[in-house]
Structures are given as structure tokens and as C-alpha cells.
């Protein structure tokens, strides 16, 4: 019995050793390929070969297989140099997304470049009479601000704080006699209700109409989900939109200020799951696939 147990133990140890060696060999190989692609991209960028830089950064993103703040930042900046303001906005926004682990420096650079891209998009909109979205209403701005995670945390903590104070006051008679207790409960309850309602509405808006970014320099927005439909308006790439519906390769988007129309799904990058849809055949009825923001470019 003891001999059989020892044999099994030795086999398990051997298998674990082989697995560890495989894993240790495999990880540096992938890492080198990614770093090589990033180095090639950086060199091409420094020489002004932005198209080569884009290809190299996309190769690095594809090797990584999932969004990475630094790769997204380099891609976004390269797209900005290429004049593709839509993809530049999309990737720079991804680079600021906490899910992609941006360092403070990368996040700051990405925000700065986003501002610059936005400025250029405004110029393109002015020059080509394209839409970047009208002035958003105060309610839309309020909901946009209420989407921040700290608002959700504040509402949650306020609610539980009011609950705890109320409970303690009920149980400890000494605290129940006057003092700031009722005022604290009222203020915390108001914060719970108001912040909670705003944050909840913002989350609901994100769930029913996810956020996205129009890709390309300018995008034709149609009145119906067809390339043969009348053109509703021209939108500038980089315009932030809400994706309200999806029909056979087209998505219905709403720009700030209630400008609504249909665009091919391949021309919208989604910010909720960090993905862009790529038309396999280029047509409205063609099949499409979805790639993550850091894994490939449309």
C-alpha cells in the first residue's frame, strides 16, 4: 500500500514539474513577442511611419488577447496621428478605463491626448459641417456624472450609515435622547435616496443603451438600417453615442442632444465591454464578429 502511494506521489510531482516548466517557458515567449511588437511600433512611430506603428501595436494587442491600457494608449495616439479621430478617441478612452489597469501617468497622458483629439474633432465638425453631438441637457450631464463609482459607493454607505444610527438609537436609550442623531439619519437618508436614484438611473441607461464611440474620421448616419436609406446626417468620428438598438449589421445610435440614426455596427466601438464589431463581409446583412479593444483593430 505504502509503495503504491509513493509511486502515485512521484507521478504527481513529475507531472507538476513538467507543467511548471511548460508554463515558465511559455510565458516569456509570449512576453518577448509582445515587447518586440511594442518596440517595433515605437520605432516606427518615432520615424513618423504611423501606419507601420499602428500595425505593430495592433499585433501587440492581438498577442495580448485582452485590453491593456498602455497598448490602447499607444494605439489611440497613433490613430490620432493618422487622422482617424474615431478610433483614436475609442482607444484613448479604453486607456483611461480602470478595468485596463492604467497607471496614473498613462491615464493622465491619455486624458491629455483625448482633449487634443476632441479639439481636432470639433475642428473637423466645423469644417465639414458634421455632427459631434449637440449641447447635452443638464439632465444628461447629471446622469453622466452620477455614473461615477464613487456616487454608487456614497449612496450605499449613506444608506447603511443611516440604518446603523437608527438601530443604535433604538437600542441605546441614552443616545436616543436628542442630539444629532435624527439630523444624521435625515441627511444620510436623503443622500441614500438622491445619490442612489441618480446612480441607478445612470446604470440603467448603461444597461439599456450602452455607451459607444463612432469610429473613423467621419461617419454617415442613415435614417434607416440600410446603406441605401437616406442620409440623416454626417457625424464626426469620436462622437460619443448611446447604442439603442441593433438590426442586422446596423446599430441605432443617439448622439448627445437627441440626434438619432443608424450606422453600420462596424463603425461603433462599444465602451461597456471594450469591443468593436467588425463586419465580415462589409455589408449590412453580412455576419459580424466582435473583438476586444486591445485584441485587434477594426
Amino acid at each position: 500500500m505504502g509503495g503504491r502511494t509513493g509511486r502515485w506521489l512521484r507521478m504527481w510531482c513529475l507531472a507538476a514539474l513538467v507543467a511548471a516548466i511548460v508554463v515558465m517557458w511559455a510565458r516569456p515567449a509570449a512576453a518577448d513577442a509582445v515587447d518586440d511588437a511594442m518596440a517595433r511600433g515605437a520605432a516606427a512611430y518615432a520615424e513618423g511611419r504611423y501606419e507601420d506603428a499602428r500595425e505593430a501595436f495592433e499585433e501587440a494587442a492581438s498577442l495580448l488577447g485582452e485590453p491593456n491600457a498602455i497598448v490602447a494608449y499607444n494605439l489611440g495616439t497613433t490613430y490620432a496621428q493618422l487622422g482617424d479621430l474615431g478610433r483614436a478617441t475609442y482607444y484613448l478612452t479604453v486607456a483611461t478605463d480602470p478595468r485596463t489597469h492604467p497607471t496614473p501617468e498613462i491615464a493622465e497622458r491619455a486624458r491629455a491626448n483625448l482633449n487634443e483629439v476632441r479639439r481636432r474633432a470639433e475642428l473637423v465638425a466645423a469644417a465639414e459641417k458634421a455632427q459631434l453631438g449637440r449641447q447635452a441637457s443638464w439632465w444628461a450631464l447629471l446622469l453622466d456624472a452620477a455614473r461615477a463609482p464613487w456616487v454608487g459607493w456614497a449612496a450605499l454607505v449613506s444608506g447603511f450609515f443611516a440604518l446603523v444610527v437608527w438601530f443604535v438609537r433604538r437600542k441605546i436609550a441614552r443616545l436616543a435622547r436628542g442630539g444629532l442623531g435624527p439630523a444624521i439619519i435625515v441627511v444620510a437618508s436623503v443622500l441614500y435616496v438622491v445619490l442612489g436614484a441618480l446612480h441607478g438611473l445612470a446604470l440603467r441607461a448603461d444597461a439599456t443603451a450602452p455607451r459607444g464611440v463612432l469610429l473613423g474620421r467621419t461617419v454617415t448616419v442613415y435614417e434607416r438600417p440600410s446603406r441605401h436609406a437616406p442620409e440623416a446626417f454626417q457625424a464626426v468620428g469620436g462622437a460619443e453615442v448611446r447604442i439603442e438598438d441593433r438590426v442586422s449589421g446596423f446599430v441605432r445610435v443617439r448622439l448627445p442632444g437627441n440626434l438619432v440614426g443608424w450606422v453600420p455596427a462596424s463603425q461603433v466601438g462599444r465602451l461597456d465591454d471594450l469591443s468593436v464589431s467588425v463586419d465580415a463581409g462589409g455589408g449590412g446583412r453580412s455576419a459580424s464578429r466582435t473583438v476586444r479593444a486591445g485584441s485587434a483593430a477594426p
Binding site: A42, N68, I70, V71, P98, L203
Partner: peptide, 29 residues
């Protein structure tokens, strides 16, 4: 435009969803 990142080794990590997901927030509220 701010310059691109040009380090030797790319820091990487898995995409991490924030702890306070909409479902958790709704349940807490």
C-alpha cells in the same frame, strides 16, 4: 499630442471588473 509609451517591458494584467458591479450595488441598495 503627448508622446507614446516606449518602455522595454510592457506591464500587463488581466482585465478586472470593479468589485461594485451593478448587480452588487443594486443588491446593497
Amino acid at each position: 499630442l503627448m508622446p507614446i509609451w516606449t518602455g522595454d517591458h510592457l506591464p500587463r494584467g488581466r482585465v478586472r471588473e470593479p468589485w461594485l458591479t451593478p448587480k452588487r450595488w443594486t443588491a446593497g441598495m
